[in-house]
Simulated scan of single mutants.
Amino acid sequence: MTDVIDINIPIHGEMLHWGRKPTYEMVEQMVDGFASDVSRWLIGAHTGTHVDAPSHFVQGAATVDTIAIDNVVGPVRVLDLRHVVEEITAEDLEAAGADGAKRVLFRTRNSTDALTRPEKSETWVGLGPSGAQWLADRGVLFAGIDYMTMEAPAHTEKWPTHVILCTAGIVILENADLSSVEPGGYLMVCQPVPFVGREAAPAPTVLLPLPGVDA
């Protein structure tokens, strides 16, 4: 049986999060005499392993409930970018073998560093504008990274990478745990929660290392 690789990060009250962290309350509990446990969570749309839909930065663009299935399910190429210090460039993507891929995941040093910390790091690895434009020019459908934002640290005021990707209709996956994923081709199944009309949603994602998959 083929091993399924889970690249999701756990959701809990002390997790790494941009802004307000998740909270929950118990609505019913068996210890109080109820038949079952029932919890209610207060989380942001950008919690945990999640997708940014194009409407995150482009008015009128696709929302999470209207993303085409072809964007989020299909062959994906995991790129080894662990040597990059802070900003993934177009040259980095070419050197890592991204050409020809329609869906890409960036394995960086984040997976064993910034992603493992409960608070935002002072620095992390993100995709730079030149890398974003390189993907857009080649008709890429999906791009994911192992941190809570695709944006490189130097650009989190005007968010040019997000603007470029969203304008091109590229679905963004953030907070993917790629620490145990070897570079190469996989079959990806990413299923965003279909929040109607919204710009983002948690998106449980798994990879299947099936033989013969050409990402």
Rank of each mutant, 00 (worst) to 15 (best):
residue 167 T to H: 09
residue 212 G to I: 09
residue 205 T to F: 07
residue 68 A to K: 11
residue 130 S to P: 15
residue 129 P to R: 02
residue 48 G to A: 02
residue 72 V to Q: 01
residue 18 W to D: 06
residue 186 Y to L: 03
residue 67 I to Q: 05
residue 95 A to W: 05
residue 154 A to F: 13
residue 178 L to Y: 06
residue 53 A to V: 07
residue 197 G to Y: 01
residue 101 A to Y: 04
residue 44 G to M: 03
residue 65 D to P: 11
residue 118 P to Q: 01
residue 194 P to Q: 01
residue 27 V to E: 05
residue 63 T to F: 08
residue 104 V to C: 01
residue 192 P to G: 09
residue 145 I to D: 05
residue 76 V to D: 06
residue 128 G to D: 13
residue 51 V to E: 00
residue 95 A to L: 13
residue 3 D to W: 00
residue 68 A to C: 08
residue 157 E to N: 11
residue 14 E to C: 00
residue 89 T to W: 05
residue 174 E to H: 01
residue 167 T to V: 00
residue 28 E to Y: 11
residue 113 D to I: 06
residue 93 L to Y: 10
residue 161 T to Y: 07
residue 55 S to E: 03
residue 170 I to W: 01
residue 62 A to Q: 11
residue 40 R to P: 06
residue 73 V to M: 10
residue 147 Y to S: 09
residue 175 N to H: 04
residue 67 I to S: 05
residue 129 P to D: 06
residue 117 R to H: 15
residue 113 D to H: 15
residue 11 I to L: 10
residue 204 P to K: 03
residue 117 R to P: 15
residue 37 D to K: 07
residue 101 A to S: 12
residue 10 P to E: 00
residue 182 E to A: 15
residue 154 A to G: 15
residue 54 P to A: 07
residue 150 M to S: 07
residue 182 E to G: 04
residue 59 Q to G: 13
residue 198 R to K: 09
residue 159 W to L: 14
residue 165 L to D: 04
residue 66 T to S: 15
residue 204 P to C: 11
residue 178 L to I: 04
residue 172 I to H: 00
residue 65 D to R: 08
residue 27 V to Q: 05
residue 172 I to G: 08
residue 145 I to P: 14
residue 107 R to M: 07
residue 17 H to Q: 15
residue 215 A to Q: 09
residue 165 L to Q: 02
residue 215 A to R: 02
residue 109 R to W: 09
